[in-house]
Measured scan of single mutants.
Amino acid sequence: DETGKFLVLSLYDYQEKSPREVTMKKGDILTLLNSTNKDWWKVEVNGRQGFVPAAYVKFL
């Protein structure tokens, strides 16, 4: 199980638009929880879990 094993870097600021999403700032290091959807990845940032656009992050 690779859940929570990968870190990704936020390339852009992102403001959550729904309760299922999370806000991140450019340069944030996020824990990747799920990347099965090619468009939206589930991450943990600042103690919160939610989705961010996959195009806004990259693997470290």
Rank of each mutant, 00 (worst) to 15 (best):
D1I: 14
E2M: 14
E2R: 13
E2C: 15
E2Q: 14
T3Y: 13
G4C: 15
K5I: 13
K5Q: 12
K5V: 13
F6N: 10
F6Y: 13
F6A: 12
L7N: 06
V8N: 01
V8K: 01
V8R: 02
L9G: 02
L9Q: 11
L9P: 00
S10G: 08
S10R: 04
L11C: 10
L11M: 10
L11T: 06
Y12L: 10
Y12G: 07
Y12W: 10
Y12A: 13
D13H: 05
Y14I: 02
Y14D: 02
Q15F: 14
Q15P: 08
Q15C: 11
Q15I: 15
E16V: 05
E16K: 14
E16P: 15
K17G: 08
K17P: 04
K17V: 09
S18E: 09
S18D: 12
P19A: 11
R20N: 14
R20S: 13
E21A: 06
E21F: 07
T23Y: 05
T23G: 09
T23M: 04
M24L: 08
M24I: 14
K25C: 09
K26R: 11
K26C: 08
G27W: 05
D28V: 05
D28I: 05
D28C: 08
I29Y: 06
T31D: 04
T31L: 15
T31G: 05
T31M: 12
T31K: 13
L32F: 05
L33G: 00
L33Q: 02
N34G: 07
N34Q: 10
S35C: 15
T36S: 14
N37D: 15
N37F: 08
K38S: 12
K38I: 09
K38Q: 11
K38N: 11
D39G: 09
W40Q: 02
W41R: 00
W41T: 03
K42S: 07
K42C: 15
V43D: 00
E44L: 08
V45S: 10
V45A: 10
N46K: 09
N46A: 10
G47I: 02
G47P: 00
G47V: 02
G47R: 04
R48P: 01
Q49K: 10
G50E: 01
F51H: 04
F51G: 01
V52E: 01
V52R: 01
V52H: 01
P53F: 05
A54M: 04
A54H: 03
A55W: 07
A55Y: 09
A55T: 11
A55L: 10
A55D: 09
Y56E: 02
Y56H: 07
Y56P: 00
V57C: 10
V57I: 10
V57P: 00
V57F: 05
V57A: 02
K58E: 12
K58F: 10
K58Q: 14
F59G: 06
F59D: 06
L60M: 11
